[in-house]
Amino acid sequence: MRFVFTLFAFFLVSYLASSQYLEKTIESFEQHFQIALFIDSMEVINHGITPVEKRSKMGNVTVIVDGDSFIPQRKDTVLYQYIDFLSAELSKYPEKYLQNIGLEAIALGAELFVGKTKRGGIPNHQTNTILYEASYAMLYDEAYMANVIHHELHHFAEQTLEKRERYFKKWEKINPPKFKYGYGGIMQYDPRYQNVDFASYNHPKEGFVSNYAMTGAEEDRAMIVSLIMNERERAELLKWLPSDQLLQKKVKLAIEMLNTLSGTSENYWTEVMTGYQ
């Protein structure tokens, strides 16, 4: 009986220590970036992201909008690692960048769904929040995890870009004559295109880094920005730039947009992030 009590006490102390460390990790993140970090369904609900909470057999599931869901991550070790990685990636941006684009909160869940489709990230502009998947699967692929972070952050940032329609028109004029985008990133879930490789950086056409970039102008821009920010995959972009004049123009315009968003006077993005001038 004494052994059982001792074992219980050990696990209780370990659990409390882990919880306290996670709380300190979240507090440190919030203080450093001046944004809220949510890991629990009730925090998501209280922030106004969702009006209702539902329970499932597997635990707590928060419904974001009709048919969408946020499933909390219950593993503290996963959250520690993801928050540490997220901090490193967000620290690449100029000071006050997150405030400049109006980001107020980030929510981390084990799984995110839009309808029945699993997503790695969801920008929620109505509440100035981005939801990210913090899972074991994400932690095993740092290149993809970084890509999702920067890709979704740029989708969010474009909503606050001054004179964005002017930038967007300039972007489309760079494309080859008669080129038309698809109907958005949702194309990758369309059974009609199941044989198309949307995941790879394969430079399928002049001016584009991937097939996914051709699904929509917003995806094209986010793909390039994520490559600018992600040194694990940036070599792919730098490899194609010397021989692709359209891609060169897109990178320069993307950097111009980033400078507008960040308020940087020097060309922070070219000199520090890409090494391309």
Rank of each mutant, 00 (worst) to 15 (best):
Val78Glu: 04
Leu79Asp: 01
Leu79Tyr: 04
Gln81Glu: 07
Tyr82Pro: 00
Phe85Leu: 13
Ser87Glu: 11
Ser87Lys: 06
Glu89Lys: 05
Glu95Pro: 02
Leu98Met: 09
Leu98Thr: 08
Asn100Val: 15
Ile101Ser: 05
Ala107Ser: 11
Leu108Ile: 13
Leu108Thr: 08
Ala110Asn: 10
Glu111Pro: 05
Val114Ile: 12
Gly115Phe: 05
Gly115Ile: 14
Gly115Gln: 03
Lys116Met: 06
Thr117Cys: 07
Thr117Trp: 08
Arg119Cys: 09
Gly120Ile: 15
Gly121Pro: 00
Ile122His: 01
Ile122Thr: 06
Pro123Tyr: 02
Pro123Asp: 03
Asn124Trp: 14
His125Asn: 05
His125Ala: 04
Gln126Thr: 15
Thr127Arg: 13
Thr127Trp: 02
Ile130Arg: 00
Ile130Trp: 00
Leu131Val: 15
Tyr132Val: 08
Tyr132Ile: 11
Ala134Ser: 10
Ala137Gly: 14
Ala137Glu: 14
Met138Gly: 04
Asn147Gln: 12
Asn147Cys: 07
Asn147Thr: 14
His150Gly: 01
His155Arg: 14
His155Leu: 05
Phe156Pro: 02
Ala157Gly: 03
Glu158Arg: 10
Gln159Ser: 07
Gln159Asn: 09
Glu162Cys: 04
Glu162Met: 11
Lys163Phe: 03
Glu165Ser: 09
Glu172Gly: 07
Pro177Ser: 13
Gly184Met: 05
Gly185Val: 13
Gly185Gln: 03
Asp190Trp: 02
Asn195Asp: 12
Asp197Gln: 05
Asn202Trp: 01
Asn202Ala: 05
Pro204Ile: 06
Pro204Trp: 01
Val209Leu: 10
Asn211Ile: 15
Asn211Ala: 10
